[in-house]
Structure formats: structure tokens, C-alpha cells
């Protein structure tokens, strides 16, 4: 077994932009679920919407800042539309509606009738919308290697993207930390613990939940942009499974903990990569084909999610007293 190569690949997952994108999406979900107790099962929908908005705006010739603003704005609108009918209802209704809404976004995105705008099933190729981001890089062209990490400076899956992605994740953690200790965050925690108590103090619970949904959704949209910068926008790559991975990440790291999503994302992707690469080396292809090992990895993720929720719902960093999973 070639441990240098295996550990090199695992180390690659630690800094990968996709890991950062999942961490950021999970931070958004942490605002929804960890802080406010909202069961958003459509975080991938926010990501897809953000990705489409950013890519389409860039293709239309808009500068980077404007394209990002468009993504943020569309997430705000989407969250508002979703929130109005559901935030007054019980938790599992929100779960069903958000999962359905995310699915509608995906169906519309991949529909043949939208091919001119979204590229339909084939999606939008990365070269069409990456350039504004890549042009902003201060680094010279070429490659740079640091230990096991060797990437292009500016192009696609680059150092530049890694630095920006993890900086955004860091800023989001800072925001989360400030929010949790602000009066606003305390009200959200109050909503999570006992809505009626908060209402009796004269707070508008609906408005607070809506603000939480919008803020977490915006982080989801930004995560969508980070997710598609090293690849293409393709509706099916941001489907329902992605939402479930984000949930696994959040519950693994620990809901309502500032660094829970970051730890969860790094841990999930490195462990998954470790298991898959080791299995590929050890198991002959006659016993398990390469794609079957891939499937096996996802079966493990599903089982991990089940076991986590049953035996350690607070995750690694979470506090059992702050557990948001409860029935109202």
C-alpha cells in the first residue's frame, strides 16, 4: 500500500475548496438549525440558486461583485418566499417544503426549456464564469507546491480559490461567534428553546425566524458559488444528497457550536477519502469495483448519520444542553 499517495490525497481533502464550500453551507444550516431550531432540508437548493445566479450574471457580463450580489439577492428572495407559508407551521412542514422547493429549483434548472439560460441538463461550463474570479488573483501564473499540496496558482482548482474560500469560511465563523453572543442571537436561541416564552416577551417570533432563514440561506448561496468555482454548474450535482451530507457534517461536528461545521466538513471528507483510497488498494476489483467502493462510502455516510443522531446528537463539539432536535 502506498501510504504517501493515500495520505497525500487525504491531506488534499483538508484544504479542498469543496470542503470549504460544505463547511460554509453547514454554517448557514447551523444558523437555521443549531441557533433557531429550523429544519431546513433544502440547503442544497440555496447553493444551487446561488451558483446559477452567480454564473448567469457573470456570463451576462456583470463584474464579480455584482454577480455575488445577485446570488445573495436571489437567496434572500427565495428564503422569504419559502418562509412566509411555513415558518408559522410545525417543524416537519418546513422540512418537507424546503426539500420540495430545492427540488423545484433543480427541476427548473435542468429542464430542457431552460437550456438557453441554465444550460439544461448539461449545465454551464466552468470556463464561462470563472474568469472574473481568476482575473482578481494577485499571484503570478504557474504552480506552487507546499508539502503534499500542489495546485495551480490561479486557474480553476487553485491556491487562490483555496485562500478565498477558507477566508470566507473564517469570516463566517467569526460572524457566527458574534451572532451567538449578541442580543439577536439570544432571541434566536430563545425561539429554539421555547417559542411561546419569547412571544410572551413581546418579540416577533416570525420575523426572527425569517431573519435566520434569510441569513443562513445567503451563506448557502455563497457556498454554492465556492462549490462551482472549481467545476461546472450542473443541477444534479447539487441535489437532495448534498443537503443530507450537509446535515451529516453539521451533526458530526456539533450543532450550535462555532467550529462544528468546519470540523465536521474536514472530518467527513478526509475520513471518506481515507476509507475509499485504502479500500481501492486493498480490495481486488473482482470483489468490489471502483464505483462500488464509491457507493460503499455513501452507505457508510448514511449509517454514520443514523448512529450520530441516535447515540450522540450533540456531535463532537456540541453541548447536549443546547440540543436543537426536539419536538415542539
Amino acid at each position: 500500500m502506498d501510504w504517501t499517495r493515500i495520505l497525500g490525497q487525504v491531506a488534499g481533502e483538508i484544504v479542498a475548496p469543496t470542503t470549504a464550500a460544505y463547511a460554509l453551507a453547514a454554517i448557514g444550516l447551523n444558523i437555521h438549525f443549531g441557533l433557531t431550531g429550523l429544519l431546513n432540508m433544502g440547503q442544497a437548493g440555496f447553493m444551487l440558486l446561488g451558483a446559477y445566479s452567480f454564473a448567469i450574471a457573470t456570463i451576462a457580463g456583470w463584474p464579480l461583485w455584482a454577480a455575488v450580489l445577485v446570488a445573495v439577492a436571489s437567496a434572500v428572495v427565495f428564503a422569504t418566499i419559502l418562509g412566509i407559508p411555513t415558518l408559522k407551521l410545525r417543524g416537519d412542514y418546513l422540512a418537507i417544503v424546503t426539500i420540495a422547493a430545492a427540488e423545484i429549483v433543480r427541476l427548473i434548472g435542468r429542464s430542457t426549456s431552460m437550456t438557453r439560460i441554465t444550460g439544461g441538463n448539461a449545465g454551464l461550463a466552468g470556463e464561462k464564469y470563472k474568469y472574473t474570479f481568476e482575473e482578481l488573483s494577485p499571484f503570478p501564473d504557474g504552480e506552487f507546491s507546499l508539502g503534499p499540496w500542489q495546485y495551480s496558482n490561479n486557474l480553476s482548482d487553485s491556491w487562490w480559490l483555496r485562500i478565498v474560500a477558507w477566508t470566507v469560511v473564517g469570516l463566517a465563523c467569526l460572524l457566527m461567534w458574534r451572532l451567538m453572543n449578541s442580543p439577536w442571537g439570544r432571541v434566536l436561541k430563545g425561539v429554539r428553546e421555547d417559542e411561546d416564552a419569547v412571544r410572551s416577551l413581546g418579540k416577533n417570533v416570525f420575523a426572527y425566524k425569517m431573519q435566520s432563514l434569510v441569513l443562513g440561506g445567503v451563506l448557502g448561496a455563497l457556498a454554492g458559488i465556492l462549490f462551482v468555482l472549481p467545476r461546472a454548474v450542473q443541477a444534479d450535482s447539487l441535489g437532495r444528497p448534498v443537503t443530507f451530507y450537509i446535515w451529516t457534517i453539521l451533526l458530526l461536528g456539533g450543532a450550535a457550536a462555532v467550529f462544528g461545521p468546519v470540523l465536521g466538513s474536514i472530518l467527513l471528507w478526509t475520513v471518506l477519502m481515507l476509507i475509499k483510497t485504502v479500500m481501492r488498494d486493498v480490495i481486488p476489483t473482482t470483489v468490489m469495483r471502483s464505483e462500488q467502493i464509491e457507493m460503499f462510502g455513501w452507505v457508510l455516510v448514511g449509517i454514520a448519520l443514523m448512529l450520530l443522531v441516535i447515540f450522540r446528537p450533540q456531535g463532537i463539539l456540541g453541548d447536549k444542553k443546547e440540543l436543537a432536535i426536539r419536538d415542539h
Partner: peptide, 26 residues
Amino acid sequence: KRGLGTTQQMIVTIGFAMALQYTFQF
């Protein structure tokens, strides 16, 4: 019997669905 809330159980069903789907595909 463990007293797991229905919301927690719902997330367990999501994990279960994922595991089953990929098992079928496997």
C-alpha cells in the same frame, strides 16, 4: 423506547434512506 423524539427519528430515516439507496445501487 429510547424516547428519541420524532424529529430525531426523522433525521434517522434520512440516513437510513441514504444507506438503502446506495446499497441498492451497490
